[in-house]
């Protein structure tokens, strides 16, 4: 992963906005993209609306053939593609599933996406796949394990990947790293990039009593190759404090837009995905969210903080 490592330089080395996003492999356009949903595929194929890129969940395209591949093949002719895995279980204590790595490699071979990303989480254990992203403890043992798994993935896929910060509802008492330091160290040791999920930042910070602005300030922006935006749902914990759920079933919340603005002020234009996986709205609603993100991305190109940082 030497090519990636050369990019992982300290932020003090000046780079222009155009060099900013972490090159996961082909570079996604620094614009807003949308998650590809079955419900929208036919409309997208027919109208080919201008969105920056499409993102798919890798596991939904691991069948041999049929309509999913037919539609994706057609859409791939028009749109840059991000492949986002949800099932590799990179944070798991068990070895990575070689068969799953093979399936990912085959999918990446088939569609030549501009980016591949996965989560700092685990989802498979003792032969069971849980279809959810479980949290890990942030300690030295976990760091070593995750670094090994990221390296193995990058070697198998023969390209650097992006690793996403998780949304979590509980913490481990034995964690002795902050999440941002933990991610920084993984990126530094493996040369992987990071996927900054701004909604997850809000969800996790509220759920653990952290300051989301401070979290962003501590986030290693030099490694960010993509941003995710989504809607959260709100509950209360047993003491009546807010408990946010990473539900992906509604519009991006105002406070998440504000965090996005703060992040892009530092990052400059960055590939940004609107995720909306449950209660999927009509395509125009999703496209409107993408346009709102594009407006903020465009403004970030000449944001004072960003310019100052780039020139520093």
């Amino acid at each position: 992963m030497t090519s990636a490592q050369t990019i992982a330089v300290p932020r003090s080395s000046a780079r222009s906005a155009a060099d900013h996003a972490f090159p996961a492999f082909g570079a996604l356009p620094r614009r807003a993209g949308i998650g590809l949903k079955n419900e929208h595929a036919a409309d997208l194929l027919r109208d080919r609306p201008p969105v920056g890129f499409l993102e798919i969940h890798a596991e939904n395209y691991m069948g041999a053939g049929g309509p999913p591949h037919h539609l994706l093949k057609g859409l791939r002719e028009t749109y840059p593609l991000s492949v986002h895995g949800v099932g590799l279980s990179i944070g798991g204590v068990e070895d990575l599933d070689e068969r799953h790595l093979d399936r990912l490699a085959a999918l990446i071979e088939r569609y030549a996406p501009q980016s591949f990303s996965e989560h700092l989480a685990w989802s498979t254990h003792a032969g069971v796949y849980f279809n959810d992203l479980f949290p890990i403890a942030y300690d030295d043992a976990a760091l070593k394990r995750v670094v090994r798994h990221v390296q193995q993935t990058q070697e198998r896929l023969r390209r650097p990947m992006l690793l996403e910060n998780p949304s979590t509802y509980v913490a481990y008492a034995r964690s002795d790293w902050s999440e941002t330091d933990f991610l920084t160290e993984i990126a530094r040791q493996t040369g992987c990039g990071l996927l900054l999920d701004v909604n997850n930042v809000m969800v996790s910070c509220v759920n653990h009593g952290h300051d989301a602005h401070a979290y962003l300030d501590a986030f290693p922006m030099w490694a960010v190759g993509e941003i995710h935006l989504a809607g959260y749902a709100e509950r209360q914990d047993s003491l009546g404090a807010r408990l946010l759920i990473d539900a992906h079933g509604s519009a991006v919340a105002d406070d998440v837009w504000a965090l996005f603005q703060r992040a892009t002020a530092r990052l400059g234009p960055t590939p940004t995905l609107i995720e909306w996986d449950n209660d999927v709205p009509e395509l125009p609603v999703l496209l409107k969210e993408a346009r709102a993100a594009d407006t903020i991305l465009a403004a970030s190109a000449d944001a004072p903080t960003h310019t100052a940082e780039a020139l520093a």
């Binding site: 279809n131 479980f134 509802y169 913490a171 009593g209 914990d237 047993s238 408990l243």
Partner: peptide, 26 residues
Amino acid sequence: DGLAAWNGSSVEQRFGVYRNNVVVSL
């Protein structure tokens, strides 16, 4: 064991979010 909530709220209830996500999504 070993889970924590920042404000001392019920870990059981928070863990229930995962349990619910798993079962409902499947």
